[in-house]
Computed example of a mutant assay.
Amino acid sequence: MNYTIHQLQIFLKVIQTQSITKAAEALFMTQPAVSIQLKNLQDQFDISLTEVIGKQLYITDFGKEIAIMAERVIQELENINYKTQAYQGIMTGRLSISSASTGKYVIPYFLSGFLEQHSGIDLVLDVTNKSKVIESLKKNETDFALVSVVPDKLPIEEEILVENKLYLVANTPIRDESKPHIYRESGSATRLAMENYFERHQGKQRKRLELTSNEAVKQAVIAGLGNSIMPLIGLKNELLNNQVYILESPGLPLKTQWRLIWLKGKKLSPIGQAFLAFLRAEKHQILTKNFDWYLRY
């Protein structure tokens, strides 16, 4: 057997994405280069690792077994690097955080100082919608989750970071009642908050526009496709440049809290404990430095 670590890493990415094209994009490689390395790995085995039916790539049962062992190999290699750095007095390891999509405007400011202090830490930050964030937390696939709404019936502990405020916004300062409301996709915390608000104040409405990210909603509002209830945290530049305007509405802003949560009873790693200690010590300074504009609304 002459397969390489690089080939195993490529194979794992192909399995994760279920696509050579997507694996190539994620690895910043060309599609032919990924295909060649996958073939070189396959040549080491008499049994197929993958198969193509129609245009869809599938992983064989044998391939899935090899992937499990490959993951262990890659993890052990990472542990070697971490252990070497630990002996040099450097805090090492991996910090994984799953964040609701709008959290991308929040969590980087709470991470930057910590990562500067501990250069041996590898960060894995997955930004997705609320449903997937909670699912990842339930499966214990992540150290922490960043959410604005506490999940039901899930025992957690939390650290509050900053208030989350949602306003009705449009591309003009005067409300146009003919414009439709633009919603996020199902599973989004913003979508749920928006549905609850309009049901209380205007009754159920037909959803005419639905987009799958806050950035897409923001661009649609700027273009005049409709109005939407959006988190203020992601609108700083657009408000300053008069691309969007806050429309006064009864019961707004809606307010929740951006909070870092983790499973109750979870034994946090030394890195997780250090990150929480950093947040508790530096939170006020981080808010003052980076969120002064936001706190004034």
Rank of each mutant, 00 (worst) to 15 (best):
I174T: 15
I174W: 08
R175F: 12
R175S: 03
R175V: 09
R175Q: 11
D176T: 13
D176N: 14
D176S: 15
E177I: 15
E177Y: 14
E177W: 14
E177A: 15
S178L: 15
S178C: 09
K179T: 13
P180M: 14
P180I: 09
H181E: 11
H181G: 04
I182P: 05
I182N: 01
I182Y: 03
I182G: 00
Y183D: 02
R184F: 06
R184Y: 06
E185V: 04
E185K: 02
S186F: 10
G187D: 05
G187N: 06
G187L: 04
G187F: 05
G187M: 08
S188I: 00
A189D: 01
T190P: 02
R191N: 07
L192V: 11
L192G: 01
L192D: 02
A193D: 01
M194H: 07
M194C: 04
E195I: 14
E195L: 12
E195S: 09
N196P: 00
N196Y: 10
N196I: 08
Y197E: 10
E199G: 07
E199L: 14
R200D: 13
R200H: 12
R200G: 08
R200C: 11
H201Q: 15
Q202P: 06
Q202H: 14
Q202K: 15
Q202C: 12
Q202E: 14
G203Q: 14
G203H: 13
K204A: 07
K204F: 12
Q205R: 15
R206N: 13
R206T: 14
R206H: 13
R206G: 06
R206E: 14
R206Y: 13
K207L: 11
K207P: 03
K207T: 05
R208C: 08
R208W: 08
R208V: 04
R208D: 06
E210T: 03
E210F: 01
E210K: 06
L211F: 02
L211G: 02
L211N: 00
T212W: 01
S213Q: 08
S213A: 11
S213D: 10
N214E: 09
E215P: 04
E215F: 10
E215Y: 11
A216L: 13
A216K: 05
V217K: 00
V217I: 12
K218Y: 05
K218I: 09
Q219F: 09
Q219Y: 10
Q219I: 05
Q219V: 02
Q219N: 14
A220G: 09
A220P: 00
V221S: 03
V221K: 05
I222N: 06
I222Y: 02
I222A: 08
I222K: 05
A223Q: 11
A223L: 11
G224W: 06
G224S: 11
L225Q: 04
L225I: 03
N227C: 11
S228R: 02
I229H: 02
I229Y: 00
I229Q: 03
M230A: 05
P231K: 07
P231W: 02
P231I: 06
P231S: 11
P231C: 09
L232F: 07
L232I: 07
I233K: 03
G234V: 01
G234F: 02
L235A: 01
L235W: 00
L235S: 00
L235C: 03
K236E: 14
K236N: 11
K236R: 15
K236D: 08
N237D: 15
N237C: 07
N237I: 10
N237E: 13
N237Q: 12
N237G: 07
E238Y: 10
E238A: 10
L239H: 07
L239N: 02
L240Y: 10
